[in-house]
Nucleic acid binder design. Structure first.
Lengths: 224, 224
DNA sequence: CCAAAAGTGTTGTTTATACACCCATGT
DNA sequence: ACATGGGTGTATAAACAACACTTTTGG
């Protein structure tokens, strides 16, 4: 006989959903999982799931990401809480949405043999999404673009060491517009958020690029 | 026999809490209610309460404000969701925090005879607050100050018609620092967010001040 | 020597800051 | 007439935007 949990007034279910971004081959991508069960069986959805009784919201988001995609060590930030009474046809489900950023280099998705496989999708060619997830994705992207303008958020898409042109390419991808590279280099250097490692990246068939890394140890610095 | 609500996995309770700001006599104030029941009986707390099954989160916040304080027609915006498993000693309670702004002129609090009276408190002389409400208040104030710099949020503290010096005083209150008034007037006029009503405020024992009102019909405009 | 990306300065424009006096009214 | 807050301009500094050529490497 299954255990039940009883309350003397109605309680909604609470989930976290995560919009995980990365930049791969110069395109903004995000991670979706294919739903195995109804509702929206077979549709693509954001990774996420129910909050456990003794679990912090951030912890829940990280756990769900790890369980559904095998990915850990992401930059994670709360986005917004969606609580439309009818957003899930089964029962009242309030979702605390997060967005997360991860560098794509050396990133392995969990073996994707089963039906609940996680896959990267190009941001500008997304499939139809389950629930109100399209709305969540839209808001996450707005926040990503807005916050990139005044913080080092975008650094999270790159490995520890990177060239300034790689960083610029990330900004161009996020903001969806070209940036003047002299102005970009001046800006990024004047803010003091990168330090020259002294190393260069060789082996390309052109002039080697200096390697930089973020000056701040971890997290995201706010500029201006 | 009381009705119970049964689920086959644990569900947290969900509340909304509202940090309602106003500016009264040149000071930033916020509305607190005194708790009648345990936990924290007798302590001051943010107005708020449980989300009903068929109720949107925003609607819940507005309803709780109305019920506990009699106040309606506020500017309301979601702030952050707090879900520390131990933030409420009774059971797991996740709260979706909001902040709200209201003009203080002609504002009547609900009759405050009972123990659950709502009262305005000066922001820089707040009593100890119940739960994690002090943390919520701190975040709300940071957001208020930050967003005032690039939006017309602060207009919400004033009635429809106002003088530029009244508006400046509101900004000085929020930002906690003096502003040069020639620069302020230039800024606010160049952004085009106010229009001259042609009216003036007379009866003061000094030169009458021109009255302005927000150019945008309602809501908050983003500048820059 | 060629292709490819790395790297570098100057100028004009816009935006932010600092600062002090006259004006219109009510009493 | 005087006290009170309302109202105005200019000069300097800082931030931002536009723009094109030289350098270094690998093949």
């Amino acid at each position: 006989m299954p255990q039940t949990y009883n309350y003397n007034f109605p309680h909604p279910a609470v989930t976290t959903d995560i919009v995980l971004f990365t930049v791969r081959d110069g395109a903004l991508n995000l991670l979706l999982v294919r739903r195995a069960r109804a509702p929206f069986a077979g549709a693509w959805a954001l990774p996420g799931g129910f909050v456990r009784p003794q679990e912090d919201l951030d912890t829940c988001a990280l756990r769900e990401l790890r369980e559904e995609t095998g990915i850990r060590d992401v930059y994670l930030e709360q986005l917004y809480t969606f609580g439309d009474p009818d957003r899930d046809p089964r029962e009242r489900v309030i979702t605390v949405a997060y967005y997360a950023l991860v560098a794509s280099d050396g990133l392995e998705l969990r073996a994707s043999t089963d039906a609940e496989a996680a896959q990267w999708h190009a941001f500008d060619a997304l499939p139809k999404l389950a629930f109100d997830h399209a709305r969540i994705v839209r808001l996450a992207h707005e926040r990503l673009a807005a916050k990139s303008r005044y913080s080092t958020l975008a650094f999270q898409f790159l490995p520890r060491d990177f060239t300034l042109n790689e960083l610029q390419a990330v900004y161009e991808t996020i903001l969806q517009k070209p940036i003047d590279n002299r102005n970009f280099r001046k800006w990024i250097r004047d803010t003091g958020v990168v330090s020259d490692t002294g190393e260069v990246r060789r082996g390309m068939r052109h002039r080697p690029a200096r390697l930089y890394r973020a000056s701040h140890t971890d997290g995201v610095a706010i500029l201006r």
